[in-house]
Design a protein around this nucleic acid. Structure first.
Length: 192
DNA sequence: GCGCCGATTGGCT
DNA sequence: GCCAATCGGCGCC
């Protein structure tokens, strides 16, 4: 199960000439063709979702709610449309850079910076937020991960003990399937 | 062509 | 806890 394997891994971005990294602590699996919640449901195709059909190991980055980018790793056989959404990181390196990038796009009160003592996790605790902190845009869509400016490398091991599996959140279709994976040791406010 | 909705986030009641 | 921001896709006329 790839979504589970990504937990504890380190996601590193070299975008815009700056290095930022974080531990992956939350993922969700989208199964592709047979999954009503997947962008690849029943083989749907349009300009925005072509990336989900790229070869396993490619990035699929889509625009959410017209303003946020969300990063997925394609993981199934080519053409199936299976992918794992990275929903949460814990910042590891480049916190100052993440803070600057996040502040840059806060529309009303950009002066309210995230980060600071015990607040760094707020920089990357959602799929849109972590994409912003890492500098991820649709440019990354369809790129093979290992050769791209954003890579995932082995991190710490995850024991069954700290693994939590819950239904996916923020969706309406197939919302009952237990396909959300997270680390109990890094629980944040959203956790059900 | 038109209106509604979403794998989100931030701000304010 | 509710709602606006913002836009591409989709259903329907």
């Amino acid at each position: 199960m790839v979504a589970r394997d990504l937990l504890g891994a380190v996601m590193i971005s070299y975008l815009a000439g700056e290095t930022v990294a974080g531990h992956i602590v939350e993922t969700e699996a989208y199964l592709g063709y047979d999954d009503p919640a997947s962008h690849a449901w029943r083989g749907r195709r349009h300009r925005g979702n072509e990336g989900i059909y790229s070869p396993p190991g490619s990035w699929y980055v889509y625009l959410s709610y017209g303003m946020h980018c969300c990063a997925n790793l394609v993981c199934g056989p080519t053409g199936l449309g299976a992918a794992v959404l990275v929903r949460g990181l814990v910042p590891l390196e480049g916190v100052e850079i993440m803070r600057r990038r996040r502040a840059a796009r806060k529309f009303r009160h950009p002066e309210r910076l995230e980060g600071g003592p015990g607040r760094d996790a707020a920089l990357t605790d959602g799929p849109g937020k972590l994409s912003q902190a890492l500098g991820i845009t649709r440019e990354l869509d369809r790129q093979p991960m290992p050769a791209s400016p954003v890579v995932v490398v082995e991190g710490f091991g995850v024991t069954d003990d700290e693994l939590r599996i819950t239904p996916r959140i923020g969706i309406t279709k197939a919302a009952d399937l237990p396909l959300r994976f997270l680390l109990a040791s890094r629980l944040r406010h959203r956790v059900a």
